[in-house]
Design a protein around this nucleic acid. Structure first.
Lengths: 179, 179
DNA sequence: GCATATTCTTAATCTATGTTAAGAAATTTT
DNA sequence: AAAATTTCTTAACATAGATTAAGAATATGC
């Protein structure tokens, strides 16, 4: 999306840390203040909350080439309610919030890149809210399938159920319905 | 949030159009491609979809000093599903998408301002998604009351019901419960 | 490759929330 | 301020989706 010169690439390479996250290992845990965003090079991460009854609710999947973070904790500097862990063995690039800001100062077009990225994330989040308000569970599942075709066979069904806001049992029933 | 010089103020004043929007009048209608963001100087706007059964679902309230737009339509350049209208007689500032970009080029710190604004909107939207996934209707109503105390007495209850994703009848019942 | 743990399915039962309807209260228009 | 419209409340009944439980299928760790 943003063409970079060799020097700009070097700046970024210096500020970003590569990391392997094996399946089920955390990149971030609830209770801590988030200080990193992650770009998924390979694999898949997810962010989720755990409610008072111990149920997990997935906020975001981040397959390859997606960014993931706890935006709330990052911008408010407050302890976060979110956990971020790997659904598959993954390789990520970590960018700390302070590095991010220093990149913006040194390479302004990256501030534009992240602004646009965030605008797209907001548009997608709004769309998801509208889906909750106006669609049945079945319709949300069908939308999910067309929106994330690659995820359907790589992540457990119960994770999809959690993302669309239903129980795994009910998702199982919905799937049985459509022969 | 962003201190401006006299000249910068003049640039902005030139690119922004002031407009009065009487109660129930539209700033934007579904089907059109959105090309403006609006800053609410006075009054209150809302964005909402109308589903196939004719029910309204409110995505956002914008009381004084908030921005409102159809981010999806704006960034994808696609016809929007959202209507934006005034809940109260309002005065707004309209900023077209093209002016917005030209402001970014002329006053880079405003690109930062809008990046931060969008990050905050995303954090709030994520929070709302988590609320849907993990809270009952009653808890969502209570959260709404603490989050938007000023709205509770200025907008119809049925609008609150629509925003938190329940019917007005059920909200009425919830309110009766807590004596 | 076997044992263990996790995920998925099915079915019976339960419950939070929706629907319908009708009157009361509040607000807006004339 | 009366009439008309919109919003709010209440109550009986309906339903989408949750819960519980148990077995079957898959996946994982050793």
């Amino acid at each position: 999306m943003v063409p970079l010169t060799k020097e700009e690439e070097d700046i970024i390479r210096e500020l970003v840390k590569e990391k392997d996250v094996p399946r089920k290992k955390f990149m971030h845990q609830a209770g801590e203040v988030a200080s990193y965003s992650a770009f998924v090079v390979e694999g898949c991460l997810r962010s989720y909350t755990v409610d008072r009854d111990g149920f997990e609710h997935i906020l975001q999947f981040a397959p390859e080439n997606w960014w993931i973070s706890d935006m709330y904790s990052l911008v408010k500097n407050q302890p976060s309610e979110l956990n971020i862990d790997a659904l598959l063995d993954s390789k990520i690039l970590l960018l700390s919030r302070s590095c991010q800001v220093s990149i913006y100062d040194r390479i302004p077009k990256l501030e534009r890149y992240f602004r646009i990225l965030t605008e797209n994330a907001l548009a997608a989040s709004n769309q998801r809210t509208i889906n909750y308000l106006s669609l049945t569970a079945k319709m949300r599942y069908e939308k999910f399938c067309t929106l994330y075709p690659t995820l359907i066979n790589t992540i457990p069904q119960k994770s999809i159920a959690s993302y669309i806001g239903i129980t795994p049992e009910f998702l199982s029933k919905l799937r049985a319905e459509r022969n």
